[in-house]
Amino acid sequence: MSAPRSSALARRTLLAASGGLLALPALGQARFPNRPVQMVVPWGAGGGTDATARIVAAMLERRLGQPFNVVNRTGGSGVVGHSAIATAAPDGYTIGMITVEITMMHWQGLTQLNPESYTPLALMNSDPPGVQVKHDSPFQDIKALADAIKSRPAGTFKASGTGQGGIWHLALVGWLQAMGLKGDHVRWVPSNGAAPAMQELAAGGVDIVTCSVPEARAMIDAGRAKALAIMAPERNPMFASVPTLNETLGINYSVGAWRGIAAPKGLPAEVAGVLVPALKAVFDDQEFKTFMTQRGFGMIYADPQGFARFMAEGDRAMGEAMRGAGLARG
């Protein structure tokens, strides 16, 4: 760890000594990175995306010998941060964590940005939604809940988890559609994120919350809520007692809130050549694995081409789902 840092320091001193005249060509030739890198996070400090970004940044810093500073650019349902990443200079000194919202916001007409606006570097994580109910709900398993939803008239049940047209809203819509119902058979109550939605659930304000299980964990641990199922191909080892939709209802529907690292479009190949292997190494690091598992975060890796394919695929699926639910605009 000390070796790359001291050599970077030496380089910096050399650079400074060589003066302004030589600085520009020298910068071009010097191995990336030779000054601090900004990692933009479109979501607030303390949340899941922020925590993931911070550990990735800390581990990149150790590998590449330059500070990787996490910069939170929050608000606008993620538009502000995503556009800060896309519009930065493509020199590698501004990268960022992009999230599933990049495949959704442009369908809603919030921004022109889409997955094509970035140089994908690595997909790091994906969390499936869970189905949570109040601890003393009359429906103690997913089968009973699904039957009740189907048998009652539309609008009887209310669900929450995020804002209108957010990823957890689409999770609900997709699940309902997979059961042969309309997307608004369960009314969506927009909330300011998963935590307030869980509070509503505990207070008896809504019947179902479809956020990810890690986000619901605090209320579940406090004995005020219960996870009935997750919408994923397989169970989460951290919450092994929660079944999947497939094994209980025979519905093979899965969707996820993913997070990955990307840079502005037009990143030079030699810079990507430094970042991509470093990110792969971070993903394979035991420390990263331990951190993610403890938090209950799902781990999934894809290299730049795989990440691009993954996003294109997700973008198409989201477009369909949002049009189906009447959430697409423009």
């Binding site: 650079l15 400074a16 302004g20 900004q38 500073n69 996490v70």
Partner: peptide, 14 residues
């Protein structure tokens, strides 16, 4: 605090 204060002219020196 690692606030991204602009580096500007001082970039090569910092």
């Amino acid at each position: 605090m690692r606030v991204p204060l602009p580096r500007g002219l001082m970039d090569p020196l910092l």
